[in-house]
Amino acid sequence: MGMPSGFELFAIVAVVVLLFGGKKIPEMMKGLGKGIKDFKGAIKEDEPTTMATNDKKIEDEKVEETKSSTTDTTTKV
């Protein structure tokens, strides 16, 4: 089963227009576009926080490694 051919696409569009009417389709598409835009905006808002948190964890791990290596050398001496 591949992509629909020209006639099949025409039939699908005709059925959608008959079911929803020409006036309702642009409203649905506007709502869909707004939903996608809001979703992308929410993802972009969340990314810097996540990346900053990951960077902070990496810094904390490096500090802990430095502390533990410093502690190990003083105990051995």
Rank of each mutant, 00 (worst) to 15 (best):
G2F: 01
P4T: 06
S5D: 15
F7E: 13
E8H: 10
E8Y: 08
F10S: 15
V13W: 09
A14G: 03
V15E: 00
V17W: 07
L18M: 09
L18H: 08
L19K: 03
G21A: 04
K23R: 09
K24P: 00
K24Y: 01
E27T: 09
E27G: 04
M29T: 10
K30Y: 05
L32A: 15
L32Y: 13
G33Y: 03
G33E: 02
K34E: 08
K34M: 09
K34T: 08
G35S: 07
I36R: 11
K37C: 08
D38F: 04
F39H: 11
F39Y: 14
A42C: 14
I43H: 02
E45T: 10
E45Q: 14
D46R: 04
T49A: 06
T49Q: 05
T49M: 06
T50H: 07
T53N: 12
T53W: 07
N54W: 15
K56P: 00
K56F: 03
K57H: 14
I58D: 06
E61P: 03
E64G: 04
E65G: 01
E65V: 08
K67L: 12
K67C: 10
K67Y: 09
S68G: 08
S68Y: 14
S69T: 10
T74F: 08
T74W: 06
T75E: 13
T75I: 12
